[in-house]
Amino acid sequence: MYNFNYQKATSRDDAISARSSADDGSYLAGGMTLIPTLKQRLAKPSDVIDLAAIDDLAGITDDGGAITIGAMTTHAAVANSDVVASKIPALAALAGHIGDPQVRNRGTIGGSIANNDPAADYPAGCVGLNATIITNKREISADDFFTDLFETVLEDGELITAVSFPVADKAAYAKFPNPASRYAIVGVMVAQTGGETRAAVTGASQSGVYRAADIEAALGDGLDAAAAKAVKVSADGLNSDIHASAEYRAHLISIMASRAATAAG
């Protein structure tokens, strides 16, 4: 790790001002991605601004038709939340299978989606559940938020404060993990919310999370699992690596969508 200045922000404003005055600042949420990156010397921030002491960034609130999760809420907190389990069990289940228990104890929803790892689970959760990402400046639809591999619409210094998930009528997430890293080779969040059917896919595409229109059409209003399984997903634009070919990923998209649809009931 290269050396850096460490700052512990005490409020949102404090964090934002520390970031703007740094040469090359980096927010530190749970650190589950940033710290390994620093250890590999793949990043060299001048300042690391720890968000953990900002007490109004963590927590889960039930807004009736939606659940709002503070950006610094850990995966374990989401997985173990009674509110999430009762309102959007698919989201609790997704959070409960991110990484390993120690990652879930430290990793946060804000950190995960800001990083937008193309094989991470939360981006599919956000897009599939039609979430809204709330920052210090604006509210952004998940559809618009994730732009490319490790890229989002966040501006320099913009701070995610919370993510709001509308309560889905039916939803489930199915993941086929990479055997080594346990990130998703393919993960599909299937959800039906207010008459709209969504299937958001992570792990598969060369440009990150996306909505699979062919799968959504097949799922239809009834979340037809057999129809989803029958979709021949094109391998064009999908990742191919030592763990999985594009063809295998294409196939798994149908299978995982179908399994999610079955689980969603």
Binding site: I35, K39, D50, A76, Q102
Partner: peptide
Amino acid sequence: DTSQCGACVVHVNGESAKSCTILAMQVE
């Protein structure tokens, strides 16, 4: 050095955590 093996697991405020993926300053 990729936060996976877990040989470094300790408890921070009662919860298990990988001490290789936490800055000492974070646990002030």
